[in-house]
Amino acid sequence: MKEIVVIIGGGIAGLEAASQLLKLGYSPIIVEKSDRLGGHVARWNRLFPDMTPAQDLVSELIASSKDANIFLNTEISFINRLKDSYNIMLSNGISIISKYILYTTGFRLFEAQKKEEYGYGIYNQVITNADLEHWFNTNKDDRISGKDIKSIGFVHCVGSRDEKARNSQCSKVCCITAIKQAIELKEKYPEAEIYCFYMDLRLFGKKFEDFYTKAQRDHGIHFIRGRVSEVSENINGQVIVKAEDTLAGKPLKVTLDLLVLMSGMVCNPDSTKSASMLSLPIDSDGFLKSSDNVFHITSSPRKGIYYAGACTGPKTVPETLAEARSAVLEIHSTITGEAR
């Protein structure tokens, strides 16, 4: 009998894991709470640093995992532990018994309206990184389309590195995403002045630094080291942004036609909920706690429970895919080890 592996979450980590499990001859079951696969990445337009279309990646992953058993619009009602396996009850009434559960529950985008001073949901010209990707995909957003856009701002670290927002972690991808989106907007509005407000620029990944210098030199994007303190609206409906230019040591303000908030990655409350049914530990940042942050990122302290992707903390796309493969390999070694 083919071993069943239950994968919670049909984002890129879940899909990649399913596709690898299929290749190894197992029978993965994907439980996805929404009505579609691909998670956050499916809503993105292009991926840094090579501007790969996000849809290409998601389509390929869906194609390679199509033989998995997939339940959409399905949530975990409860999970309980049996002697050497788990009983997973789904919201559609189906119950599954499996020795292996892989959490690929991902992250939740920080709700930008929680930073009240930035005026998301109050001032028309304030949008989020996700709204901007949606516009890149659909060209539909009254806040951008048809507007005469001459100045644009990006606010890094919205809900990240912010203990007031109860998220002290760095969301890792926002710096490079802001630079990517700034370049994309500059290509669409070559005359516009674009300002990135950052605390630190954390450009750790392959070719990220090249991207940054390209933004500076080829696209003339301005970088201002200082966290935005408040946003307000003027009589023309533009937004006025205030910050301290910490390198000049002076307060600074600028009037903008569009302000993009880089909402960070925060823990997904759904993963915390189902983790609590198995008393899985939660880390101080609210994400699921791996049994070890260096050597065993994809393992939980409980037998048969594995993690991959952003459920244990902010990750890039390639990191998430690598973890999915790594978790599958670990599950495979456990299964073959037990069979021996």
Partner: peptide
Amino acid sequence: SAINLDNVDKERFRELC
């Protein structure tokens, strides 16, 4: 003494660039 980016003459810096 604050910086007001709306009033900065950017042309000469562009010339420099």
